[in-house]
């Protein structure tokens, strides 16, 4: 009786799980299939397959230039966020000063403030600084939202790393910076790498800040997509969406692979 109940419960759970997964994944799959369509409009299921919309993306400056800008901004954002976020995480995780909990909350606050609010604030600030509409504005704005993520990820690693490691390094003759460089950072390196990957993706996919701060000149790929879809239904969008999904998956899988390699080196 009891086991029968559990059996039924388990079946129901499976059905719900599968339905939710399908609901989440289906749009992505449909977009990917549609992107292979040959017609100049979106057709699902496609009658004839072709890669013309992918070719269009890579050959048209209308699409390719924003993509290049997106990559540049995302790269700069990822590097800066990783640097700032790692230092902040080490400071908060290892420091003995007062109010470090409050400081942590403050640093992480861009994650909870609505992005629109943040974007508006940055818009007002940057317009008085005359950097609106430049890649610099996008880079700064994206760094503000990407750094907290790195802090959260790296801080978790700092808190699980044994502080005795650093004490040991100090007693063995390493100065503070040296202990940080040779011991602490290598130990938390997998977390720094995941944080960097996430920071890259955050910037690469971001549209709200890009709309507010990009102006007419600095247009990132997500912003160009948004602009395009307002006036026309260009099947190139489906090709780009598919590519973006693949890039995101590749970066996360790559980061995980690198992480495993490092752990493998210690667990082998």
């Amino acid at each position: 009786m009891e086991s029968e109940k559990i059996g039924v419960f388990r079946v129901v759970l499976w059905v719900i799980g599968i339905l939710v997964s399908v609901f989440l994944v289906a749009p992505i799959i449909i977009v990917m299939i549609t992107s292979l369509n040959e017609m100049p409009y979106m057709e699902f299921p496609p009658h004839r397959l072709s890669l013309r919309w992918y070719r269009n993306f890579f050959t048209s400056p209308h699409w390719f230039e924003p993509a290049l800008l997106s990559v540049r901004v995302a790269f700069a954002t990822a590097v800066s966020a990783a640097f700032l976020g790692t230092l902040a995480a080490i400071g908060i995780g290892r420091g003995q000063f007062r109010f470090r909990r409050a400081l942590e909350m403050f640093f992480v606050s861009p994650l909870v403030v609505p992005v629109v609010v943040l974007a508006l604030g940055l818009y007002l600030l940057f317009s008085s600084l005359h950097v609106l509409g430049t890649p610099l504005a996008l880079y700064l704005g994206h760094t503000v939202i990407a750094t907290p993520l790195v802090i959260v990820i790296v801080l978790a690693a700092v808190r699980t790393a044994d502080p005795e490691m650093e004490l040991a390094a100090r007693s063995l003759g390493a100065g503070y910076m040296s202990a940080l460089w040779h011991v602490t950072i290598p130990i938390i390196r997998p977390a720094i790498l995941s944080g960097t990957a996430f920071a890259f993706l955050i910037s690469f996919d971001e549209v709200i800040i890009a709309i507010f701060l990009g102006g007419p000149d600095a247009t990132t790929l997500p912003k160009r997509m948004w602009e395009t879809i307002r006036f026309e239904i260009d099947p190139t969008l489906t090709a780009i969406s598919s590519l973006l999904t693949c890039v995101a998956v590749l970066i996360l899988v790559g980061a995980e692979g690198v992480r495993r390699t490092f752990q493998g080196r210690s667990a082998r």
Binding site: E164, M165, L167, A168, R170, S171, L172, A174, G175, I187
Partner: peptide, 20 residues
Amino acid sequence: LAPERRNIGVVFQNYALFPH
């Protein structure tokens, strides 16, 4: 003197070996 300048060897309970 900072710990790194005391020339004192320390052995910790959990060994504190560098895993990497």
